[in-house]
Design a protein around this nucleic acid. Sequence first.
DNA 1: GCGTCGCCCTTTACATAGTAAGGCATCCGT
DNA 2: ACGGATGCCTTACTATGTAAAGGGCGACGC
Lengths: 194, 194
Amino acid sequence: MPAKRPPVPLSRERIIDAALHLADAQGLRRLTMRRLGDALEVEAMAIYHHMPGGKEALLDALAQHVTTVSVEAGERAAWQDIAALWCRAARAALLAHPGVLALAMTKPPRGSAAAAIREQTEQLREAGLAAPAEAVRAMRAYVFGSVAVELQHTGWADPTAPEPGPDPDGEAAFERGLSALLTGLGAADTTGAA
Amino acid sequence: MPAKRPPVPLSRERIIDAALHLADAQGLRRLTMRRLGDALEVEAMAIYHHMPGGKEALLDALAQHVTTVSVEAGERAAWQDIAALWCRAARAALLAHPGVLALAMTKPPRGSAAAAIREQTEQLREAGLAAPAEAVRAMRAYVFGSVAVELQHTGWADPTAPEPGPDPDGEAAFERGLSALLTGLGAADTTGAA
DNA sequence: GCGTCGCCCTTTACATAGTAAGGCATCCGT
DNA sequence: ACGGATGCCTTACTATGTAAAGGGCGACGC
């Protein structure tokens, strides 16, 4: 009796889900094919049938997953409000999976992540922002950096910190900086557009 | 004739230096003890004598190295100028070693890196900033994120991009965002101080 | 019923990684 | 000259990523 067929046949989604849990719980270093197989109750090699490209492809998929967000912009919303929504959504998505932040920041956006960036740019342009690409770039930088610093403060991935509780100042600091950034972007935008 | 003693006896500094070169040239994934040994013309195990703690300690040291900057503040400089100097120095240090950015953002600051943060905070306080800790946090977030996005744009660590030339817009975008951020920080600071 | 085909998963195998244990030059002080 | 100390090497073991090939199970044709 070498093996029984698993009841639910293992899919790309289940793999990504389990990988996210593993990375968040134990860190990227502990995300290995064999451990991932264990979590899915499957041998490591089974993963390769659903993830052509092996671990590299898996990491790409994880990065894409935590950087793909989508926001419904109200028809007549100010670009500042739309921008704030995007930034908060991106922060939440990254913060939900601290284990893969390093991947998200390192890997260039691809596929759905790149599409999300394009949509964000388009929404801001339609809302009247003159230089939306620059603004989106600055916002992405700010969100990435904020989450990274916030995770540093929580002591995530810090062996000397036993309890990785949330950073109480995280959200407030984020909102303050976001407000400052949007203000600055608005000033630069009207200057350039005038 | 098993081995000859190398002419220069291998030190922590030489190890870190070689590791930085390796990580920058080939990526963190290719930074291995054996390859590092090859680069130093030594067997891998020799490294452990100068790096107690093994690879983990090495990575910590690399992160510390690229996040430790120091700025001489003029006696009577405005805090905005001091802040800008720190941010530019931090950006330059990170940009000089793209391979270890992920480490720098992930690992909490320790030792000299933490000391640099404290000194930066102190300088800004002395220059009249009412809430220097918050400002330093926001600046660190901004610098980290900017460098990450800039490296994404250069296509560093992107197999589909053959030539990782510098991002032409990187510096300009950085300066724009920095100016916006400092403006916003100044407004929040006077509000809080008043 | 009975091949047989194809899909998923497992087994096996190998190159490479980190690193603990112990060995053997070489160098220094005496 | 000689006894450490120091600094590097050799060996060995475990864990990882992944190529290659094998096996069971359902579906489908006859």
